[in-house]
Nucleic acid binder design. Sequence first.
DNA 1: GTCTATACAACGATAGAC
DNA 2: GTCTATCGTTGTATAGAC
Lengths: 214, 214
Amino acid sequence: MSTAATDTRAKLIESARDLFMIQGYHSTGISQILKRAEVNSGSLYYFFPTKEDLLLAVLEWYRDHIEDDLLAIHTAHVSDPVEKIFALLDGYRQMLHMFEFEMGCPIGNLALEVTNTHPAVRSLLLVNFEQWVDSVEGFLNEAADRFPEDLDRRALAVHILATMEGGVMLARTYRSLRVFDNAVNQLRDYIERLLIIGSTWSAPKSATKIEESI
Amino acid sequence: MSTAATDTRAKLIESARDLFMIQGYHSTGISQILKRAEVNSGSLYYFFPTKEDLLLAVLEWYRDHIEDDLLAIHTAHVSDPVEKIFALLDGYRQMLHMFEFEMGCPIGNLALEVTNTHPAVRSLLLVNFEQWVDSVEGFLNEAADRFPEDLDRRALAVHILATMEGGVMLARTYRSLRVFDNAVNQLRDYIERLLIIGSTWSAPKSATKIEESI
DNA sequence: GTCTATACAACGATAGAC
DNA sequence: GTCTATCGTTGTATAGAC
């Protein structure tokens, strides 16, 4: 693969990534991606036989860059592992602010838009979510001695992801950081309650179990 | 407006509502809506000049039915106000289960998909979110004497919405109720910690305030 | 209010020269 | 690998008779 080819491919992925993030997958036309990338139709279809293949490449890009380029930026300068988590959340806050609520979490957007209709895409969405959860779980593990012994740290990490995604969704709709800050604040309050030494943790059963799934 | 006309209009809104919920707004074609509603193109455009007008009508439908038809169903048989909240969340769990993760929260889906590009739609999304939060806040108010006096109950209600939306997003992507149950369980744990009499509540400041918005 | 037929643009995707 | 030209389909929306 020549350098020029790599450049073209990379430009297409970047352009598609940005447009999918702002407008979503279906609202973004191939022609729009071509114009932004300054690439011609023939080249795109040389690398990506279908639009879905391009989406897969975008999600592979996120998978390969989420750790170093997206998460570490916000957490590197923080030493306390629990504060690393909040620094990460603050990264999303900055994103919302910087792009005036036009951007939130790209994975979350795509998840709701294509997970029903594009099965091949779903597994890459999962990989991205899992990497995020792995990172947060890692931070929680670093601070394990400050939490109750019986705390399910992975479950808490998943919960933090859910809260972030929900907070981003509301912030984008309200076009206000207040709802996002609110979600983060409650999360911080919860975590501080967990941090109380000697506290015990027990996840209650959900209201009505229909059936245990998976 | 004749009865026949009302029927046609209602059929169109119902069909559009269902299809938007499963497939999203952009993935749903007018022709698909027409087929499902068994209505012809001319009739649709008689009632709704554009596709966006149909979307607005769908969101108005949710606005007018969310209270009695969607929320009350799940909470009516529960007496304890705090448990009403969890019964409500369980309603979403049932929905995820019943439709095999093809459906979650219709408002949340549409929020991420169209909030950037359809400003007129955004205010109706807000109305729906606000109604939901109002209901939950009402339940929290009913149980006010069991919570710390200084608890910001509306903020907690918003947080519950964010958690539900995030949990639904993850459940649909993972195609598993586990992640949803997880979010609800952590929420229950948090609320039980708040319920401890004599406990005080204080929302910490978010990590880095960029600027106070709105 | 409803019908059928159709306009017209945008869509994803392809062909074939270079 | 890249170019231009274009295919066939689907998209939203309209026209005009009834």
